[in-house]
Design a protein around this nucleic acid. Structure first.
Lengths: 351, 351
DNA sequence: CGCACAAGCGCACACGTGTGCATTTAACGC
DNA sequence: GCGTTAAATGCACACGTGTGCGCTTGTGCG
């Protein structure tokens, strides 16, 4: 080994093509110590502008690429941010991730995606993130156990939950305003002149879905009590187009079906709408008014024109990264926070 | 420093909560050398089953998580696979990434996503991947310069291009069968009784788009020469719904518009279809037949029913990972390969 | 001209793991 | 019982970087 190194040195630039350039190479070439190179790169310490320029220029000339692995090793912290998600099937989540990845890169970090489609592996997968010395974690799917959360807090790794239940002690939570959303949906359906309401979401449902449904019911509670309106809790098997479609076939073939349905997610609403229009011959919104939640891109397409509660994926991502950045800037000193993203009603042709 | 360590040792298990468990802790606890722990974990070497069990059990009990950063440092190779993509706006790319991430995890690796929405940063961003000692790279967007590719080949890092031009010497290429796709599209439109064809894709276009258009033209070339049919090359500003929609408004308001249009991607086709149906009052497929490419999930929804050329995102991902796995198993010894994924026509109501 | 002080720089250690090689232990044959 | 062999294990170095601390060099003041 040692002799090999010496050989490489003595032969000079004979076989440079297969060697990886390290900071030592840059130092030698620039005629300074390796530590000086390091200080130039991190902008640290007391380095003369002249030396600094020379080193940076040399590094560039040699095509030096810093070894992030070695740097992470030394710092005991990488510049990776773990993204815990359950696949890319949910269109809104994709939109969110799109902006999130972009925002993470913008603050100089890299996203490390973990797919936890199998919920039983959730704990193991999240712990695996610690193996990469991640600088932070964003959870967009699944509900991490409090025990898992402790591991991250203990290591001062900030965790942000997005549109999830805030069970996790010490974790930040970024949520859209489900309460207002549910209320706006109720108002929209009331304004459309409907009187028999339904809330359709995946059976069992998620935290967000349940919160939206409860807010919806709370908003119509007075009229419900007076018998002025009716309400049915509806369920579907999956939280997507197909789930909404199948549920629509079943629910709407019933003679006493609701005429105003609020769906927990847009994708479900689109399936419901297609079942109503193309299978059961219902007119939307005349026979059935529909309100969704999220405002995914498909909802605004002419073929649908879904009235929905809009939450901005971009703002949600910005808030998430802002929380992370704050924790990273002051490790262990920033109190966890709960942030709520405003929503608004987007009126289209389904109400 | 040294004294601090000693203090921690002498106080024993007094403050274990804030220390990160290393393999040395496991070794001490299990009464073996640290190297033995390492050998147990990697399944390497000659370790008695008894020792092995005891070590693994101890590791589990202490909640030991191997430090991947340190491991990568030593191996000079991480278990990360770089995913070069340009955002998550294209639905088919999202479907592909979904399966790709899943498949990558299944072979024990982790995806590191790099967003190269700004094409001018492509080179820099790809080179940055080398900083993480990635085990491989998948390029799903942009066209890396040959010069960049050399850096990866030199380091024996396999690169797979997916549905991209195969300019990159030494890189593997996984493509869907654009030629057959273009031909099938032509046959479908001919069978629908159309005679004035168009090919709509983003102006300038991508490698895939151009290949599809050329194959389409080639398939109708004889009839074109005999004057039996006509052909127009159409363009739109963006490769998405909005692009197809705007192009549709402009193209179809023309009196001499095509009555059978093949689109480079489904998403464009959906926009075109909506413009035709809801803005210009055309009947699909009576007045205008449309064929797309990809078979994204939205295309099969009742509101669209788009006839399209289907490529399987899942198979595409499987082929991609298979190529990577082969290169990783035999570094630098596997010749680069060009793989073609079959496509087929999915007949729906738009033809 | 001598001394003090500050700025710039280099030495050497640490991070946690993998692995070649030497060493120890156990088993077996004569 | 001893020598030989193979299996099991431990030692120590290497990977590339960040950084505390001490050394060198230059400058200004008395």
């Amino acid at each position: 080994m040692q002799s090999k190194h010496k050989a490489a040195k003595t032969t000079g630039a004979e076989k440079p093509e297969n060697r990886v350039i390290t900071s030592a190479d840059v130092a030698r070439e620039a005629g300074v110590a390796r530590s000086t190179v390091s200080r130039c790169l991190s902008g640290d310490g007391r380095i003369s502008e002249e030396t600094r320029q020379r080193v940076l220029q040399t590094a560039d000339r040699l095509g030096y690429q810093i070894n992030q692995i070695a740097r992470s090793m030394n710092r005991r912290k990488s510049d990776l941010i773990g993204l815990v998600t359950s696949g890319l099937e949910d269109p809104f989540r994709v939109q969110f991730l799109h902006h999130l990845i972009s925002a993470i890169q913008k603050i100089g970090y890299r996203p490390l995606v973990i797919d936890v489609s199998a919920p039983e592996h959730m704990s193991r997968s999240m712990l695996n993130l610690l193996q990469y010395q991640v600088a932070g974690v964003v959870v967009t799917s699944g509900s991490p156990s409090p025990e898992i959360g402790q591991h991250f807090i203990r290591r001062n790794v900030p965790v942000v939950l997005v549109n999830r239940a805030g069970l996790l002690e010490g974790a930040d939570v970024v949520n859209c305003d489900n309460d207002t959303g549910g209320r706006l949906a109720a108002e929209a359906l009331l304004a459309a002149g409907k009187r028999h309401f339904g809330f359709l979401n995946m059976t069992g449902g998620t935290y967000s879905g349940n919160a939206r449904g409860e807010a919806f019911v709370a908003a119509i509670a007075p009229k419900l009590a007076s018998g002025e309106v009716r309400f049915s809790l509806l369920g579907c098997d999956s939280a997507d187009y197909e789930g909404g479609y199948q549920a629509g076939l079943q629910i709407l073939s019933n003679r006493d079906a609701p005429d105003g349905i609020f769906c927990g997610k847009d994708h479900i609403a689109l399936g419901l709408m297609d079942a109503a229009r193309f299978e059961l011959g219902l007119r939307v919104p005349h026979d059935l008014a529909i309100v969704g939640f999220d405002d995914i891109t498909a909802s605004s397409q002419k073929a649908y024109g879904l009235t929905t509660i809009r939450q901005s994926a971009e703002d949600l991502a910005a808030l998430t990264v802002a929380r992370l950045a704050e924790h990273i800037a002051a490790p262990g000193q920033t109190a966890s926070q709960r942030v709520v993203l405003p929503v608004d009603l987007v009126q289209r042709s389904s109400t």
